[in-house]
């Protein structure tokens, strides 16, 4: 099963993957997903490194512009006791931003067009949400078109819109909830998703839970306490599994 975590530079892709890894390594009990093992040395090394950085109350380094990797994690769904392989990409947002400028998905990223589902990560605290919405729409249009779907057709791949850095929002904006905030700040993106994807859902996530006065991940009781990081993954893997059981494995 291939799930593409995509998002522009600064949307929190690496932090989310690192935080997920940390939670899996610590045996997060509240999720239906549990770690079975990592597939390959590179995945084990890189993901553990990201998790370790976050555990120390630091942000993982920004993904280098030249680095594109695909990590495979074997996960066990506790409720059904089934194991499946999840492939997550790590890629620099700058490469995705090239699509806006060139109408072209860069060669290193063409593998994204084969994925079974997508989690679009959007920084919930963006200053200019209108322009960002247009860029995200353009990116999704590009992926949809590259998959051969006509503009007037609905894409069957599930799409989760994940609003990251949720903890940094003021309380009145958090009170809107993820659907309300997305509709309020990015109506164009919400309308586009509703017009092009049959399986869709909006999530709020905070990969580190809170930040300290210096803007670094806050350790609470000696641990990072993320919020909402498993929910998108549980939903999208469930959708893919229902739509195409063959994707499991």
């Amino acid at each position: 099963m291939k799930i593409g975590t995509i998002g522009l530079a600064g949307s929190g892709k690496t932090t989310l993957i690192g935080s997920l890894t940390l939670a899996l390594l610590q045996g997060e009990a509240s999720s239906d997903l549990a770690l079975f093992n990592f597939d390959g040395v590179a995945a084990t090394r890189d993901l553990s490194q990201h998790a370790d950085t976050i555990q120390r109350g630091r942000w993982p380094a920004r993904t280098e512009q030249s680095k594109v990797a695909e990590y495979a994690i074997r996960l066990r769904r506790k409720s059904t006791n089934t194991v499946f392989s999840l492939r997550l990409p790590e890629l620099p947002g700058e490469l995705l931003e090239e699509v806006w400028r060139t109408d072209r998905i860069p060669a290193p990223l063409t593998f994204l067009t084969d994925y079974d589902g997508y989690l679009l990560l959007v920084d919930a605290t963006l200053d200019e949400p209108e322009r960002a919405a247009a860029q995200h729409v353009h990116l999704l249009q590009g992926i949809k078109r590259a998959r051969g779907h006509a503009p007037s057709a609905y894409a069957p791949e599930p799409l989760g819109l994940v609003l990251t850095k949720w903890d940094a929002l003021p309380p009145e904006e958090q009170a809107l909830g993820p659907d309300g905030l997305a509709a309020e700040h990015m109506p164009m993106l919400v309308d586009f998703i509703a017009s092009n994807f049959t399986l869709r859902r909006v999530f709020a996530a905070s990969a580190v839970g809170a930040v300290d006065a210096a803007g670094q991940p806050l350790l609470q009781g000696g641990r990072i306490v993320p919020r909402g990081i498993f929910e998108p993954l549980e939903w999208i893997t469930g959708q893919v599994a229902r739509a195409a059981p063959a994707a499991l494995g």
Partner: peptide, 24 residues
Amino acid sequence: ATPRTPEQAPEGVYVGAEVVPRGG
């Protein structure tokens, strides 16, 4: 025809305005 694979499109996949919208 829009290239779909890296082999067909060594410089990436063109995703600009090429496909005729249909159905409306």
